[in-house]
Amino acid sequence: MHRVLAIALKDLRSVLKERTFLMAVALQLFVAMFASVLTFGLLVLYNPTYADIRETANVGLVGDAPVLESVLKAVKYDSIQKAMEDFKAGKIEAIVWLPKENLSSTNFVRIYLPKEEITSIKASVFLKNRFIEYEKRMRELRGIPGDSGLKIYSTSFKKEDVPEGASIPFKLIYVALIPLLMLTTAATVAGMYIDLITEEVESKTSYVLLASPLTPLELITSKMLAAMILSAALTPTWIVLLILNHVEVHNYLLVVVISLVTCAIFISIASIATLAGDREKAQLVFSLAVIAIIPLFFSSPLTPVGLVTRIAAGSPFEMYAVAACIASLSMLYPAALISQKLFRS
């Protein structure tokens, strides 16, 4: 045990010395920042009010459409050519074209928006809301209920305004970002495990180590220990990062546990992959295995990914799945036993 710890500590020291640890943290920061860019970008696309973009736009209307005209409050044009002229000159941001409004059958409306301009997002959100209103009016004119009439209240029965698309950032954080941070950590740590093992083999230092009373199993255990200690250091880092970004992480101790289990699963796979021979082959086998396993992690709520999503979001979760997850920590042992073969030949 003492020997195992000594080797693990030696490896961790070299990781710190090469500043690879700092880089791993920077990597997490990077993933988190880009996820927030993506979240923000999608929000702006679907709901510009988030970015303080006011939903007004100068719209030109072409055609004989009295109801649409009253809903849109648009500038009226006689011909599409005239409207296009003003559109190209930047006087209006959108053209709505409905040649003849039909009160009893379907109206097909053509909209022209500027291409590759941010104003186009603003204008399209404005038009979307106006057209929902137009749809409601037209339905009512036909004696059909205009909208579902659904109301939203707070718990004190005051009317509540829930922005449309509020679920998009929420789901991106808990369904994509948190699992992604967990998986990046696991892949980084497992990749490092492969390096620790193959470096000893390829520089032939493993011969020296194994000539001492150290057994192959102990050598592998020490490398696994180093990798697990690194995971235990990296996981709280991304959780703190999230909390600093005002993301609420519930049950964070359990989140750490699930993340460590995921690291252990990846390290086990990496350990078996080292049997491929050198670093190049081992990393290749490992990457392929990881690519195969990651989609599966997202395909059920009972996987570590499904569990971490709900645990971090504070939703109810299955205790038995957590127990099964923790039990899979024991995978490390058979993996170590199998990969011993590397040192036999």
Partner: peptide, 23 residues
Amino acid sequence: LYKRYGSKAFPVFISVEYVKREI
């Protein structure tokens, strides 16, 4: 709505074309 009123309940369909301008 579609079940009860058919296509009459969907009075408006829109399609968008994006036009490049030099503003």
